[in-house]
């Protein structure tokens, strides 16, 4: 497409990273998108630290046991819970995304009639059920950590 030459370039107006992390007016799925990114990056960071920590095994029993002893404190326990929580959220939301992104659980196209209801609104009950499952699992894991 031939675009006429402009005398002055328009001013860039991209939201940038604010568009990722500031879903203010949008619905549940937009917040879940942000959460999926945050938990994914968190799990990746944890994986890198975990693999580095595993190297201590090469130091023998004494090194390993002393390392495990340093992890036996409430702060580390809280961080471990966060890792488990991140896994639960990322995995369950990921399962929903896997199915919906392959066209399942999305419904069929229908000519729109006002007031418009999009496919994500129609399938909201599935997402809410998934969130309920997440909350239940997080509660069970929390009880396991406390006891």
């Amino acid at each position: 497409m031939k675009v006429p030459k402009r005398s002055r370039e328009p001013l860039a107006n991209y939201q940038g990273l604010k568009g990722w992390v500031w879903p203010r007016h949008y619905r549940l799925e937009r917040y879940l998108y942000t959460l999926q990114r945050i938990t994914g990056l968190g799990l990746l960071l944890y994986a890198a630290l975990h693999l580095a920590m595993n190297g201590f095994r090469l130091g023998g029993e004494a090194t390993w046991t002393s390392l495990m002893a340093t992890f036996d404190n409430p702060v580390i326990m809280a961080l471990e819970y966060l890792v488990l929580a991140a896994f639960v959220i990322h995995a369950i939301n990921g399962a929903r995304l896997l199915l919906q992104q392959l066209g399942f659980l999305m419904g069929h196209p229908k000519p729109p009639v006002y007031p418009y209801v999009d496919s994500l609104q129609k399938k909201r009950s599935i997402v809410l059920g998934m969130v309920a499952l997440m909350v239940a699992l997080l509660a069970i894991i929390f009880i396991d950590f406390l006891v």
Binding site: Y26, R30, Q100, Q101, G103, V113, Y114, V117, D118
Partner: peptide, 27 residues
């Protein structure tokens, strides 16, 4: 690069539901 945030379908003023179209395109 579509991660099903769903904001497009929420904002669309004509009920086009582009999110549904994109997922069907992926399929």
């Amino acid at each position: 690069l579509c991660h099903l945030a769903g904001a497009c379908s929420q904002a669309c003023p004509k009920g086009v539901d582009p999110a549904l179209a994109v997922q069907l395109l992926k399929r």
